[in-house]
Design a protein around this nucleic acid. Structure first.
Length: 304
DNA sequence: CGTTGAACCTGTTTGC
DNA sequence: TGCAAACAGGTTCAAC
């Protein structure tokens, strides 16, 4: 579920709900999605949650230094890094509230509430990181699409020969975009998902940049998209799914040209697009030759 | 470099 | 109705 707008929504909710609280104790259930469960169990109790921020699709719970003041070798301090994967939720709840199924982490806070991490599929990630290790980890990721300038954005895309869809999803290029917002922004910019990054004109790159920013901002304003079960920190679903123009609309009509929305696998992911508005890239000589050579399809298929 | 497919895990939806 | 297959917003890794 959670891409940039959803994670931003959760971060804002948590910032309002739990910033300043101290973690009294922690109890862990399943831990296979944690880098180092022992570190989490050892480091968190006694620390205060200084702030909750979004970093790409990660939530960054910044922590006060430990009792010895030894948390940080450098500026980044220490933090609990949380990735919600596809089904993760971080919910501040009263102790009296019954715990949902698949609750894997419970942090007791100093105001008597609990911060609970729920994640049925456990595709999420949780890690306690500090100092240089934290800094290194954050450096793995590309530019934030809302903070990046047009030039930086265009350069990152045009420098690569991969498909634009793959580039938008690649967190080391741009951080925070997932399948929904990639497709929505490509539709708005009238770009086919299989177009190569390096083949975008400056004008196309600029269109995509503006489309992506507009869509992300609007989605944040509407508290994200809830496809099946996304809930923010207040347990409230988002509204942006009502504004999707292509995502999940296979067989329905394009809002611009009324032709039918298609679905194809691009970069290994379901990709929704309008084949009229979003022109397929002209295939290279090499690609065409390959398809031709493969003509006797049946015999090839039967090969083990 | 870039692409593909599989793997991680559970729940829900779709199709026969 | 029932059961199995397909599919889900994410990331990572091996193999080509």
């Amino acid at each position: 579920m959670p891409e940039l707008p959803e994670v931003e929504t959760v971060a804002r909710g948590l910032q309002a709900a739990i910033a300043g609280r101290r973690i009294v104790s922690i109890s862990l259930g399943k831990t296979d999605f944690m880098d180092d469960p022992a570190a989490i169990e050892r480091e968190l109790p006694g620390r205060s949650i200084v702030a909750v921020e979004r970093y790409g699709k990660f939530l960054l719970m910044r922590l006060s230094s430990d009792a010895n003041g030894a948390s940080a070798s450098h500026g980044e301090g220490s933090a609990l890094l949380v990735h919600l994967g596809m089904t993760g939720m971080l919910l501040p709840q009263a102790t009296s509230e019954p715990a949902k199924k698949h609750t894997h982490v419970v942090m007791l806070l100093d105001d008597g509430r609990e911060l609970r991490y729920v994640d049925p599929r456990r595709f999420g990630r949780m890690a306690y990181l500090a100092g240089d290790v934290l800094q290194k980890e954050l450096q793995r990721f590309g530019a934030d699409p809302l903070a990046a300038g047009l030039d930086d954005f265009a350069k990152r895309i045009q420098a690569r020969r991969a498909r634009i869809k793959a580039l938008l999803l690649d967190q080391s290029v741009i951080r925070g975009v997932g399948n929904i917002y990639a497709d929505e922004s490509l539709w708005k910019a009238k770009l086919h998902p299989a177009q190569l990054g390096a083949r975008l004109t400056n004008e196309q790159a600029s269109k995509l940049y503006r489309a992506l920013q507009e869509i992300l901002r609007k989605a944040i304003a509407l508290r994200g998209s809830s496809i099946s079960d996304f809930l923010d920190a207040e347990g409230v679903p988002g509204e942006y799914q009502r504004h999707h123009r292509v995502y999940g609309r296979e067989g329905e009509r394009c809002f611009r040209c009324k032709s039918f929305i298609r679905r194809a696998i691009v970069a290994g992911r379901s990709s929704y697009y309008c084949s009229i508005c979003q022109k397929a890239p002209r295939r290279s000589r090499a690609a065409r030759a390959k398809t031709k050579a493969r003509k006797p399809a049946a015999s090839r298929k039967n090969k083990v």
